[in-house]
Design a protein around this nucleic acid. Sequence first.
DNA 1: AGTGAAAGTACAGCTGA
DNA 2: TCAGCTGTACTTTCACT
Lengths: 166, 166
Amino acid sequence: MAGTRLDPIDRKILAELQADGRMTNVELAKRVGISAPPCLRRVRTLEEQGYIKGYHADVDARELGFEVQVYAMVGLASQAEADLSAFEEKCRHWPLVRECHMLNGEVDFILKCVAPDLSGFQKFLTGQLLTTANVASVKTSLVIRGAKDEPGVPFDILEERLSTLP
Amino acid sequence: MAGTRLDPIDRKILAELQADGRMTNVELAKRVGISAPPCLRRVRTLEEQGYIKGYHADVDARELGFEVQVYAMVGLASQAEADLSAFEEKCRHWPLVRECHMLNGEVDFILKCVAPDLSGFQKFLTGQLLTTANVASVKTSLVIRGAKDEPGVPFDILEERLSTLP
DNA sequence: AGTGAAAGTACAGCTGA
DNA sequence: TCAGCTGTACTTTCACT
């Protein structure tokens, strides 16, 4: 898995599909410089090996009525593994929580939440998050405006690194 | 644009393409209950109107050698609009910064960064971010582990809301 | 290379204001 | 009536063996 290193063509495929996940296979093949059939085999292999975890349309949250984005920093009373896992499981079941990451430092978790409006978020905050067992502190920050939101990884950095240490 | 409301089929299309952005049009048409040609026309319209902003393959950052994810909370010395914009523009040019959002509250911006390793991030932190004009404070938190990372919005919540207030 | 399926186009019928 | 959306039929392009 981790031993199966990728060649430059595989990395190009990943970079192209990260930029446009709905590109046809022939277009992709043209861009990476091989013919279509082997290109398709490579894509399937990358999917099976987990380098590609899925494909998603990027929908406009605001246009769909989710006007509010909030980051919530959560501190727990107990950081025992069972308690951490229990909180993570809660987050997986809350639809308004789109991301949940465990952090080092002062807070234990950062949550990225969306909501239709402020009152919708407040309802979630006071009715769900703050009433959850073991939640000791929650600090929320509203997103005033988004300046950059690029999914995935910077492939140019990856290529730079690989060219310096082969 | 905002006036052009979506019907239930459009919302179903968005939900399906958010879940699987590489689904074929005929499969999509089958799932939303119409035939392929009008389905394709709807997809094109949704793209043109900006409801769909793009399609992206979800690549595994760790497998590709980006072992480190970091949230950086940035405070600026001046919050004048020109200074805020200048900082946002910087972020757009830094490949390691994948997301940049302006927040209310104590900090001005939250940055989601990826890096190949800790030293790679430290190099960015000390060499780029901390030396940027107007940056007053930076607090970083390493992502220990990810518990949830769902792109987009929860369509089930959207349908709930629309069914209660038509 | 070749087959079967999907994407995309043109046109005609249906439905609701 | 007319606008808008739908489905059928057809051509081109693509996926897959």
